[in-house]
Design a protein around this nucleic acid. Structure first.
Length: 426
RNA sequence: GUGGGUGUAGCUCAGGAGGUUAGAGCACCAGAUUGUGGCUCUGGGGGCCGUGGGUUCGAGUCCCAUCAUCCACCCCA
């Protein structure tokens, strides 16, 4: 039975209290992207299913079992986007952005959808902050992209995380390596875990990244992609490392790091957090030099990453990062006696007109209850508007932190409070 | 998709081997001299005990199913 009072499985509401964390994250992202020269892009929440089949790869898990696909009334097969790169690549081609000054550097913070079994740090609707750069092959760009993600984590106060770096080669050297790896492993294929016996044919590189100890032991000393790169890929990888070294940035070369999506080439990286559970990957990215060609465009290179917003927020909480300061109201206008709610609203609107965040009671509560409410809302000041005050033309202004009170002429209240509030912000 | 844990008030949880009107803390609301928050005290509102079925004289408690949730695998952010 469908419960109407519950959000669908794997989805959740972000309530006002938590939204502050999200806005904090978004502010850091926007500031950094501006600093790094990345412009925001927004693409539709669904695309033609075919885009993901071609762009992500038909044998990947995302396409094989995790897509939210539906047919619309015009009999089109559409899919809620499971990742951000293919849609942005599509937009790049559709609007012929390769005709503009290159490279094109864009970012997005948008919801993604994957029909997966929910777990810690994994949801069916989740959010990714991602960047994509099209039209440049230079290794220093790979370094810049990684730097952006590292800087974001630091700006967010995340202390512990590690950057894992690898090169997955290009179609040429990877195909040759893949064949050589299969040759080396074929004797042991029956000793691997059930998952890896399957991987042997589907994606033998993935065996190297298996969590099972047996598989790890069986692959000790086996040839690695990193040692079998073609000249071009090896040179690129060395240059990326050189750029990172020059920046004094530490990273771990992990030759067993594999990307799940088909379109990755050369640089592959991942940033993992030790404070999360099994879903410890905060950021995954890399180069995809032939994705554009795969979906019918010119053979323009690209690079990007995706960062899981929920996971970053989870990691912040787990690491005990202090929450962002909550945005409370400046003034609460309380009424007493026969002063009408309409009169209070007029004062509140006057304050707001001066840029003072003001609020009032809307439940006809007692003065005491209004005080409690103002306290709960962490109002910095409270104004009492009572019969006495109206008569004298003086209202009482109370500093809620210190408890001190002063009389202020009603006519001067707005400018007075505006000055107080602005002074405190500096 | 696979395996395991858990579903009692808004939240965190109690409810000995089935037996009266299901409890606590926090939160919420009201009051403690008729116009003053935080601390304290008093009172109050709130629960299809996740849902459906079964066993029983009797089920929050036992059994089955289902849904949800959590953890892990797979995969990934």
């Amino acid at each position: 039975m469908i419960v109407l009072t519950k959000a669908p499985r794997g989805t959740r509401d972000i309530l006002p209290d938590e939204v502050e964390q999200w806005q904090f994250f978004e502010e850091k992202v926007r500031a950094l992207c501006r600093l790094f020269g990345y412009a925001e892009i927004r693409t539709p929440v669904f695309e033609h299913t075919e885009l993901f089949l071609r762009g992500v790869g038909e044998v990947t898990d995302i396409v094989a079992k995790e897509m939210y696909t539906f047919t619309d009334r015009g009999d089109r097969s559409l899919t809620l986007r499971p990742e951000g790169t293919a849609p942005v690549a599509r937009a790049y081609l559709e609007h012929k952005l390769y005709g503009e000054a290159q490279p094109l550097k864009v970012y997005y913070i948008e919801p993604m959808f994957r029909y997966d079994r929910p777990q810690a740090g994994r949801y069916r609707q989740f959010h990714q902050f991602g960047v994509e750069v099209f039209g440049a092959m230079e290794p220093s760009l790979d370094a810049e992209v990684m730097m952006l993600s590292l800087h974001l984590f630091r700006a967010l106060g995340l202390g512990e995380f590690s950057l894992q770096l690898n090169s997955v080669g290009c179609p040429l050297c990877r195909a040759a390596y893949r064949a050589c790896l299969q040759e080396e492993l074929k004797e042991k294929v029956n000793s691997f875990c059930p998952d890896c016996t399957g991987r042997f044919h589907k994606n033998p590189l993935r065996i190297l990244d298996c969590k099972h100890e047996v598989c790890q032991e069986l692959t000790v000393g086996v040839s690695l992609m990193i040692d079998n790169l073609c000249g071009d890929c090896a040179e690129h990888f060395a240059a990326v490392r050189e750029a990172m070294d020059a920046l004094g940035e530490s990273y771990v070369v992990n030759p067993r790091l594999v990307r799940g999506l088909d379109y990755y080439t050369k640089t592959a990286f991942e940033i993992v957090s030790p404070v999360l559970g099994a879903q410890s990957s905060l950021c995954g990215g890399g180069r995809y030099d032939h994705l554009l060609a795969a979906i019918g465009g010119p053979d323009v290179p690209g690079i990007g990453f995706g960062i899981g917003v929920e996971r970053v927020l989870l990691a912040r909480a787990a690491a005990g990062c202090s929450p962002p300061v909550s945005k409370s109201i400046d003034v609460f206008v309380a009424t007493a006696g026969n002063v009408s709610a309409a009169e209070a609203l007029r004062v509140v609107m006057d304050l707001r007109a001066e840029g003072v965040a003001a609020d009032k009671d809307f439940l006809g509560r007692s003065l005491k209850a209004q005080f409690k409410f103002a306290d709960k809302k962490q109002a910095k000041y409270l104004v009492i508007l009572g019969d006495e005050e109206i008569k004298r033309g003086q209202v009482m202004l109370r500093d809620m932190q210190t408890g001190s009170q002063t009389d202020v002429a009603l006519a001067e209240l707005t400018s007075m409070v505006a000055k107080l509030v602005k002074g405190a912000k500096k």
